[in-house]
């Protein structure tokens, strides 16, 4: 009997030790309530991973995660419908003024030029990319590919991915008026994967075997290159709250910046950003 008791005690000790090791989740002990999150679609995988880990550790906490786009994120958090509104772009000054929002950049996302895997072109200069999206280069032959017309795919106006791409890759240029417009990273991937003559752009985390990332000015679109600044077409992903966050919302944001949160960010295809460095950056 003593032996069994000792074993049980040992098991209990080890369980306690393991749970004690899961440091970032400790903050949620004894907490209760809900956190509602909405907004940018790029954020959803990170938010979901974090939410699942927290809810698994503490059954009294409910965290809901929905998409809707950056605009929905701003509107919903501003009007108090959710606790955290995500955006894939920096808040506009009038949005900060109107709603009194506080912003927390937590990850870097790169935007990669993508073509069909069958396309022999694997590298484009900035000028070539600009000319293709402006419609000046209209045949793949002109950039070393097959003799076929180029089908240009872009994202919708106001998309964070499009804003980043046009600002950083096209030097604030715009895309040609008759380009096909797709409304999500997923739709873009499907479009390019099915079109041998297509070209478009997606978040680096969305690159896989179905589409091919093109080197931009000789820089390969990888997370490593995006993290150290070699790859230039990047943006920050933001969480936003109405006023300084409190309670569970504050804990959730803290968790995103913890080692566990960083792991979730990396697993979703983004590069984590340190909170302190960012505050300085945002203040600039």
């Amino acid at each position: 009997m003593k032996k069994i008791a000792a074993t049980l005690a040992a098991v209990a000790m080890s369980v306690w030790a393991v749970s004690a090791q899961a440091g970032p989740l400790d903050a949620f002990k004894g907490q209760k309530g809900t956190v509602d999150i909405a907004g940018g679609t790029a954020h959803v995988p990170v938010m979901k991973k974090a939410a699942q880990a927290i809810m698994a550790a503490n059954g009294d906490i409910r965290i809901t995660v929905t998409g809707g786009g950056s605009g929905a994120g701003v509107k919903k958090v501003g009007e108090g419908l959710v606790n955290i509104g995500n955006t894939g772009r920096a808040l506009k000054p009038e949005e900060v003024k109107k709603y009194g929002l506080v912003t927390f950049p937590f990850a870097i996302d790169g935007v990669a030029v993508a073509v069909n895997p069958k396309n022999p072109v694997s590298s484009l200069s900035k000028q070539q990319v600009k000319d293709i999206f402006a419609g000046k280069i209209a045949n793949w032959k002109q950039v070393g590919g097959a003799d076929a017309p180029i089908n240009v795919y872009v994202r919708e106006d106001g998309s964070g991915t499009r804003e980043t791409f046009e600002e950083k890759a096209l030097d604030k240029g715009t895309s040609k008026a008759d380009a096909n417009v797709l409304n999500s990273n997923g739709a873009m991937k499907t479009g390019i994967a099915r079109d041998p003559d297509g070209i478009g752009y997606v978040g680096i985390g969305h690159l896989d075997a179905s589409i091919k990332g093109v080197a931009f000015d000789g820089k390969a679109p990888t997370q490593v290159n995006a993290a150290d600044g070699t790859y230039p077409v990047t943006r920050l992903l933001y969480m936003n709250t109405k006023g300084e966050p409190t309670g569970l919302t504050k804990l959730f944001i803290g968790y995103i910046f913890s080692p566990d949160g960083e792991a979730a960010i990396k697993a979703s295809g983004y590069i984590p950003v340190k909170p302190a460095a960012d505050k300085a950056k945002a203040g600039k």
């Binding site: 786009g69 605009g71 929905a72 509107k75 949005e95 109107k98 919708e156 106006d157 106001g158």
Partner: peptide, 14 residues
């Protein structure tokens, strides 16, 4: 409307 509503919160596009 579906595309614009996802991204805008105010201004002429909205």
């Amino acid at each position: 409307m579906a595309m614009t509503a996802a991204n805008e919160t105010g201004g002429a596009a909205y």
